[in-house]
Design a protein around this nucleic acid. Structure first.
Lengths: 229, 229
DNA sequence: CAATTGCAGATTGTCGACAATATGCAATTG
DNA sequence: CAATTGCATATTGTCGACAATCTGCAATTG
């Protein structure tokens, strides 16, 4: 693991506020699928679960609402958001241009060590593909893109990208994504890493953008199948 | 005014939660400059001002933290964020590619009526320029870009763009922006509108992106002057 | 006299309680 | 018997209070 996640207990207590911790916890509950899409979120229940009062839970939910992971109806409570195909499509529109920028920047700035890390992740994804381990592949895929955007060296770009990615993850939880074909996806990853290693910004940007476009196409395909059913 | 902002009292009460109203109110306080950059925000004071308890205020502040308009320090409270030149630079990096996408989309989708509205805004900005009314120019400029992104017909794109714009607005409040030269800016606006009216997506995208780049350049110039002082 | 320590006031973090509202079920009525 | 009405319950929205923490100042000490 990376040292960035290793915090001493002291640092943890000093930095993290209770609402922030609760927020992260609820986010995991949603992204991990424990809280189902569209499901009503019971404040008291969560408060009880986390051993806090409802105050911190409400603050966390307000933050998550701003992240667009939940929606709130007055006097009815908050619900896990359901992202429609149309919305996912809009997000992909934005994500494509961000991915191009990310590809360019990371090709310009990535260190040899960072390139190595990306190569290792791509290799792991090959393993997961060989073993048909879809769950592991998805986790690695997320990590791959997260590392890439981190290496692009622009925090706001990374923040913007991650926000959209989380929303897409929410969409994916509806099950309309990837009717297989993730061997193709990793071929694309490796091509991207190659362009990055070569420092070819133009090419890395183009490839990463196309990768996003392909991902969008796969999403549409799966959605069409689901709609026909 | 537009009908979109006209809500019946019934709708207002049903839709808007107290924390959401307080959030909008605080946002205006910040963006309007009433709460100074870097200033500590007193929860009790705001609660008193709005006639609520501290709960809704805290929820609003948590949402504003997610918007990056405020930052929060544990046990010390929340402060109006101060955006550095480096951060503004990062934001511009993202904004440029978004502006290109916006230009393309709006050129593809804008109705004649929408084009007319943009032309009218550009004309008003010419008036403000002639009258050296900087404040009015800035307000119109904001509205112009807000309308453009609205006409692009992609809500997530609009949301992403507005988030970044607000953060830049926060930076601008530090006074390091525009050492004049906003006559140039409006010439660019008019060229953009022309491309949109012609339905030239390629050109509109390129021009809007360059407009953002020029804005960034003006920011750097002002920042350099301020740094030398 | 500089530096540290201790204290008073102010502010945040969290909680439990109460009022307002929504929800589901049973009773009623045509 | 279907539809509506009214009620009991659960949940949200908001509040005031209290404990924990920070801040600035004064007193103390070497």
């Amino acid at each position: 693991m990376l040292p960035s996640t290793a915090l001493t207990p002291l640092q943890l207590v000093q930095s993290s506020s209770l609402p922030a911790l609760v927020q992260a916890e609820i986010e995991q509950l949603i992204l991990g699928g424990e809280l189902a899409i569209g499901e009503h979120i019971n404040e008291s229940e969560l408060a009880l679960r986390f051993g806090t009062s409802r105050g911190p839970v409400r603050e966390a939910l307000r933050a998550l609402e701003e992240c667009r992971l939940v929606r709130s109806e007055k006097n009815r409570g908050v619900f896990v958001r359901e992202v429609s195909v149309a919305e996912a499509d809009e997000i992909y529109d934005v994500r494509e241009v961000l991915d191009e920028l990310i590809g360019r920047r990371v090709a310009e700035r990535a260190t040899p060590g960072q390139v190595l890390e990306l190569k290792a992740l791509a290799a792991e994804m090959d393993e997961a593909t060989a073993g048909s381990d879809v769950k592991r592949y998805h986790a690695l895929n997320l990590r791959f893109h997260d590392r890439v955007v981190a290496f692009a060296g622009n925090d706001r770009l990374a923040g913007t990208y991650r926000l959209l990615t989380k929303e897409l993850l929410l969409f994916r939880l509806r099950g309309l994504q990837d009717g297989g074909g993730f061997a193709v996806s990793n071929t694309e990853h490796k091509a991207v890493v190659k362009a990055i290693a070569a420092g070819d910004a133009e090419r890395a940007g183009r490839l990463l953008r196309r990768h996003a476009a392909d991902s969008r196409a796969r999403m549409h395909k799966a959605a069409a199948i689901a709609a026909a059913r």
